[in-house]
Nucleic acid binder design. Structure first.
Length: 401
DNA sequence: AGTCCACAGGAAGGGCAGGCGA
DNA sequence: TCGCCTGCCCTTCCTGTGGACT
């Protein structure tokens, strides 16, 4: 492109009518004024939490539901309204929301406690203190609140799977240590079977109330997308069937509203980039591919070095061998690559864990199978499109060779 | 029915970096 | 500065296991 046409391009861009009116409305971060198809859950949660306005005890509550079923949105909305009501009624209420999956923020017991304490105004160093000391500081700050404190722990299942339920046990017993403050926990989990991981005592004290968020069906997703697209897109850019297609695709994937919104927004971006005045169902197909590709490639790029080399080994084997690959083969190839690039290889035990992590991220499929006389192993495969595989492969080759 | 393979995956602990408090 | 504590990544050692083979 010569410089004149570049100038024209920018001029065109400025003058062209945008497909979007307010793209912000089409992100999952945006909090709509009305949460569609979640009235029942809002009412129920509000009625569970309302007693704190009369300084009456609350029940610890667990909220279950898949990704993108509106759990966090509903909890944040109810929290906000509850805090407003408490202020009007001159009741001391503090609600702390923490996402336990936030890397480097609340993904260990120490970090969670430190983050909770920080929310109450206590200064806690990132590391260095004994955990007991962080508990003490946190409890002291709680006591200073002299009212009700509600701890909302989002994605709590991820944290419990990582560090166990000890911290939950301590948090549920905190009320016996405090005189002026009452503490209640609202746990949010993506995993319906989460309580199986919990100690029986923790389970019974934490699950006094339970709230289930069912996945959205395609019709509900259509309503959500219509609500957002009304002011999110410019008038009449959406062609017939686009919203329905986004909703249908997202409904297939566990009724995930976040996914539906991403599809719709990315479809718009693709349409805009291709100079199209309308968004068509073909754009939705492209958006579906792009989201899948971006998600995987980004996941690969953020992996540690050895996991990337491991993936490189799997991709190499995937090209040469037909069918599934065994752990032993992967480990041998991985060691060869390490040798070639002058890196000390990790042990098979560690590689076993890295394989599990890649599996959890959905980059590879690893299934434990038994080959009878020939042992037990993971059967590893990659079901990414060849296009995505090539992109990952060239990224890894560029980085290591 | 028993054996045996090729791992899976749990437990314990080492070593390092970052940070606190005396 | 030193002792202590943390998270994190990793190794070592170990037990467990599904099912083909004998």
């Amino acid at each position: 492109m010569d410089q004149k046409s570049l100038k024209d391009m920018f001029a065109n861009y400025v003058n062209k009518k945008s497909i979007f009116q307010d793209k912000n409305l089409l992100t999952s971060v945006f909090k709509p004024s009305e949460i569609v198809h979640r009235n029942a859950q809002i009412q129920e949660l509000a009625s569970i939490l309302a007693p704190c306005l009369r300084n009456t005890d609350l029940s610890n509550t667990f909220i279950y539901g898949g990704v993108g079923t509106g759990k966090t949105l509903v909890v944040k909305r109810v929290s906000q309204e509850l805090e407003n009501a408490a202020r009007d009624a001159h009741v001391n209420l503090k609600i702390i929301y923490i996402n336990c999956k936030m890397k480097k923020v609340a993904d260990t017991e120490y970090r969670l406690l430190a983050e909770l304490a920080r929310n109450l105004g206590e200064v806690v160093p990132a590391t260095g203190l004994p955990t007991d000391e962080v508990y003490n500081r946190f409890f002291k700050k709680l006591e200073d609140q002299e009212g009700t404190v509600i701890l909302v722990l989002d994605e709590i299942d991820a944290l419990v799977k990582k560090i166990g339920d000890n911290f939950l046990y301590n948090l549920t017993r905190v009320n016996s240590e405090l005189q002026h403050t009452k503490v209640f926990v609202v746990g949010i989990s993506n995993d319906l079977n989460f309580t199986e991981y919990l100690d029986a005592r923790v389970r019974s004290s934490l699950s006094e109330e339970e709230l289930i968020f069912p996945p959205y069906n395609a019709i509900e997703l259509v309503d959500i997308l219509l609500q957002r697209s009304k002011h999110g897109f410019s008038d009449s850019v959406l062609q017939e069937g686009v919203i329905q297609k986004c909703a249908a695709l997202a409904a297939q994937e566990h009724g995930d509203a976040r996914r539906a919104l991403d599809l719709l927004r990315v479809s718009g971006e693709i349409a805009e980039r291709s100079d199209s005045e309308h968004i068509t169902t073909a754009h939705v197909d492209l958006a579906q591919q792009k989201i899948e590709k971006d998600r995987t490639v980004e996941a690969v790029k953020s992996q540690p070095k050895h996991a990337q080399i491991l993936l490189s080994a799997i991709l190499t084997l995937n090209k040469t061998s037909s069918g599934n690959i065994a752990t032993g083969d992967v480990y041998t190839t991985y060691k060869t690559i390490c040798n070639k690039i002058g890196l000390t290889s990790l042990t098979q035990r560690r590689i076993s864990d890295l394989l599990s992590e890649l599996d959890m991220l959905g980059i590879i499929n690893a299934r434990v199978i038994s080959k009878g006389r020939y042992g037990r192993t993971r059967s590893i495969s990659i079901d990414l499109s060849t296009h995505v595989q090539d992109q990952i492969d060239s990224f890894l080759k560029e980085k290591f060779y």
